[in-house]
Nucleic acid binder design. Structure first.
Lengths: 178, 178
DNA sequence: ATGATCATGTAATAAGTTACATGATTGT
DNA sequence: ACAATCATGTAACTTATTACATGATCAT
């Protein structure tokens, strides 16, 4: 059982989903392609951590809707208590910045500006999610309790938003220096 | 040529280093073990991007000090101009938080507090680097120019520091909610 | 004595990406 | 026409981790 497998169980604890949907929704926390997810789901099913129902569709291709079993839920609880792996970040930009003196001001500026565009798109996406969360939630977000199904989504969005804003501020700060 | 290979060249552009040192110094930007780095250095040497001198040592094991060739420096310049890959972050904690409602308050608190310890250690390490940078740099850090060899180090430390501080603030904020 | 740091390397495995494969619907 | 989205899966390949291997100093 690797981390991604537990990640899939973690998402399924909230909603029953297809492999395709899992692939889309796990992206902010863990980048993975469908080719990695489908085999893992088959493994999890064999272990009895998840089960699926085959749902035929006429307009779109048929799908398999996976759901978490009680065994899977217990595995999740055990996993949470185990020591958490250190976060891994691999950012090509940081490696480029380390030798940015090799190119001239304009070229250096462009490297940063391209990343800024990427961060701004992310910010928009996260802000959209934030609005959606507020809409389908009658309570005030900051009053949500631990047991509330929306709670952790809110907590994660808060982190993601703070981080992108920080990253954008850095882009701005460093551009002024170039 | 993968990103890590360019990363090694990027470090070597600043200082000539051994594989062991490269392994240590690339960690903040790109997590890689020595078993990945040594074979890549051999490849880079065959391509003529780096060269090395064998340095015998009496107390410690002998070492190979690698340095960047002009061919390697030119490869770096080309790489900087190519589109930059999106950053990849894989954080088990985020996946755990997504299903944190499965455990009780105290257990949830501990998950966050463990990560807080990790972030605080990082903060200390970065702050130490910051002091070191200030010591062997007669100019004021914020007046450093693009060509200054210390410039990008300062720019990267600034980002790393801001990020850890943000992450710690999030831990604090979320703990108050649990 | 036991583990940590320095220093290099290879072998085996696991994890992740890209490419191949199919096929309908919807929008430009 | 052409690309995008939905939906699943496998095969080939690259990348990254863990384990194996050696061996000297230094601190606890």
């Amino acid at each position: 059982m690797n981390t991604l497998s537990y990640g899939l169980l973690s998402l399924l604890n909230r909603n029953s989903r297809t492999g395709y949907e899992l692939m889309q929704h796990i992206q902010p926390f863990w980048q993975a392609k469908h080719s990695q997810i489908y085999p893992l789901l088959a493994q999890l099913e064999q272990k009895g951590h998840v089960q699926f129902v085959h749902v035929p569709q006429s307009d779109k291709p048929d799908k398999k809707v996976y759901s978490l079993t009680e065994l899977g839920r217990e595995a999740l609880r055990q996993w949470i208590l185990k020591p958490t792996d250190e976060p891994v970040t691999r950012d090509e930009l940081m490696l480029k910045v380390y030798c940015i003196g090799l190119v001239d001001r304009d070229q250096a500026r462009k490297v940063i500006e391209d990343r800024e565009v990427f961060y701004r798109q992310r910010l928009l996406k996260f802000e959209k999610s934030y609005e959606q969360l507020q809409q389908n939630c009658e309570k005030r977000l900051d009053e949500l309790g631990l047991q509330d199904p929306q709670f952790s989504h809110y907590v994660l969005l808060h982190k993601a938003l703070a981080r992108v804003k920080g990253d954008l501020a850095w882009c701005d700060w460093v551009k002024a220096k170039l």
